[in-house]
Amino acid sequence: MNLIIGAFTIGLILSLLSLGMLISFRMIRFTDITVDGSLTLGAAITAVLISSGWSPWLATTVAVAAGMLAGSVTGLLYTRFKIQEILSGILVMTALYSINLRIMGRSNIPLLDTKTVSAPAEQWLLSVNSGEASLFVAGWQVSVMDLSVLISSLIFCVLIGWLLLRFLLTHFGTVLRATGNNVQMVRAQGVNNNLMIVISLAISNGLVALSGAMLAQYQGFADVQMGIGMMVWGLASIIIGEALVGKTSLGVTIAGTVLGTILFRLLIAIALRWGLNPNDLKLVTAFFVFAALVAPQWFKSLHRKLSKSSNHA
């Protein structure tokens, strides 16, 4: 049960990352590797600020703002200085590694017995549960703390998902989506396409930093290495989500991304439980994304071959 709750909680937290990447990857079609750095940035800022006595809400807000700044820098490198998109992301990600170390002052900051954004949920659960530190859910003993983080993440996730949907359906959101689809058309409609890319990357990395901030509060530490490979994880989650529910509408896509992230986390938790070496995790993930990207083409050519041979017969 703890395994499942843990997987769900991390899944919900990381779905903020996936939603952020949905904007860069799927909406404006920008392969943004800044993500690996801005996730750590969000975690680092939150950890430092909370441990020096700031309110967790304020710390999280500052983290999001910093993530947005990092995203805009990538956007400006790409639009203003005409650096290739991957390289723009790599430059900012590399710079962020040093910046994150500077912010934290060391490579790891523990967050023990500090207040987090799930404190309100914890208090509410404690009052409902008459002060007991654990309660039973469907016959399983669960600690109030774990459950409160799960509830808070769920609320965050639903709220952000809903806001994102409303945003993408506005006039502004509509041209944002079109920017990735047809730049020529967007310019002919009077939209500054470069500005749209910068804004999109800012929003995207703001969400990623929020994810990092929540992750640090849940795990109880921030580590300078925690962002490595996160972009590929987010991508895997988006792909799983699309395979699960399709891309029929925006709401479905957003819900699918959240579900995809949770399912991906569950699969990982199960694989680890079955004895997968944690060191192999990123290799397996990379292979999975490769397979998911190649499979559609492969199936298509297989289908063509099959229909060809049946025509001959």
Binding site: L169, T170, H171, T174, Q184, M185, Q189, V191
Partner: peptide, 30 residues
């Protein structure tokens, strides 16, 4: 294919043209 966004609906394409060159507010488009 240059004048329209293929992955978006006809209505979404037109609503962008309804504000050609104007500000794009944060209000629901359709």
């Amino acid at each position: 294919f240059a004048g329209t966004a293929a992955d978006m609906s006809i209505a979404e394409n037109i609503v962008m043209a309804m504000r050609r060159g104007l500000k794009r507010p944060l209000t629901t488009a359709l």
